[in-house]
Amino acid sequence: MTAQVETALRGPEAYALARRVVDAMQEASVWPTPLNFELWLHYVSDPEGPLGRELHRLLTGDAPFTDATAEMLAAEFLPRGRLSEEIRDVGAVLNRELAAVAEAIDNARKTQSAYGETLSSASARMQDAERPTDLTEIVSTLSTATRKVQRHTSALEKRLESSNREVVRLREHLEQVRRDAMTDALTNLANRKTFDEQLARLCEEAETEGKGLTLAVVDIDHFKRFNDTWGHQTGDQVLRYVASVLGRISRAPRVAARYGGEEFAVIFPGETPGTVEAALNAIREEIGSRSLRRRSTNDDLGAVTISVGFAERRPGETALGVLERADEALYASKRSGRNRVTNAEALAQAAA
């Protein structure tokens, strides 16, 4: 499921969205299977997106919408579907390689076994040989058998070399698939799933090792205005711009992710709140320092600003706890006029 849809399902209109999805499926006479529900979520949430347009085309045609159609759409448009398809393809190639290697090894084993029988037979015949021609015939038989063994051994070596190259290629391909599964396709930052896993892991490490951890949540100000005024393509341009600044400043061990929609998150393991606040203000100032232009028409889009909230993890605090406090600080930045960074701890002290 894309970050945009996940964000919609976590927002205040989540139940209304789910009802619209079910109504749309019922109107199209499509069974509400889990896969169909996910497809229709994308359709209802973003009817002008690639999946939405393709679903509309299929629904206005004469062909029935079947389970096979749903699988085809999932494989092409849903991230998990594409990932599963990639893994299945790699598995099929690997199975073919293993079968070919097994066959080559079996042929070599049979040849070696036959060669051993030939040697035993030749040894017995040599003891009984009475004429030089008998020895010549035995040597010729052994020479032929040896060449056959050499051919099969050479074939096996080539097969193993070829398979080794293919396995290396498959390993590299799977590594790329793994990276794709961890990355938001639009921004090339970590995706929501990777962020959740990393935050949970780093919170555990911070608790075990007694280290500090600070989490920041970043939101693009008035992003809906960009989309409504200039369209989704320009909105995507803005998202990529903000992500590029976040990604460059948030090098490892920091973790920058697209959290959902126009919202991002950055994890700062082992850094003090003062260092984090300085880094976040540097990000905010750099993002707001440029006046963007629409790529297709060169129209002036003006400056982009961000609002930020951050929270230092407290001892014993869960990943969800620190995330909620960072969110509260973000909304405080929004309420205070946007384009600013708010520390959750300072917010709590002010409220006390």
Rank of each mutant, 00 (worst) to 15 (best):
T7F: 04
L9M: 10
R10F: 02
G11Q: 01
R19A: 05
R19T: 08
V22D: 01
A24K: 03
A24I: 05
A24Y: 02
Q26G: 05
W31K: 08
T33H: 02
F37V: 15
L41A: 04
Y43H: 14
D46Q: 15
P50L: 10
R53K: 15
L58Y: 06
L58H: 11
T66M: 10
D67T: 10
M72N: 07
F77T: 03
L78P: 08
L83A: 03
S84H: 06
G91M: 04
A92W: 00
V93R: 13
L94S: 10
L98N: 10
V101A: 13
I105F: 09
D106Y: 07
N107C: 06
R109C: 01
T111N: 02
A122Q: 05
M126D: 05
R131Y: 11
E137Q: 12
V139T: 05
S140Y: 07
T144H: 10
T144L: 12
T144R: 14
A145G: 03
Q150E: 13
T153H: 07
K158E: 15
K158N: 15
E161A: 15
R171A: 10
L174W: 11
R178A: 09
A185Q: 13
T187S: 00
A190G: 02
N191L: 08
R192W: 04
F195V: 05
D196E: 15
C203E: 04
E207K: 09
L213H: 03
V217A: 03
F223K: 06
G231C: 07
Q233G: 10
T234K: 01
T234P: 01
Q237V: 06
S244C: 00
L246M: 04
L246S: 01
G261N: 07
E263R: 11
F264K: 02
A265S: 09
V266T: 04
P269T: 11
P273L: 11
A278W: 08
E285L: 14
G288E: 08
G288P: 02
R290C: 02
R290G: 00
R295F: 02
D300C: 14
A303G: 05
I306A: 01
R314L: 15
G316I: 03
A319L: 07
G321V: 03
L330V: 05
S336C: 11
G337C: 03
R338D: 04
R338T: 04
A348N: 14
A350M: 11
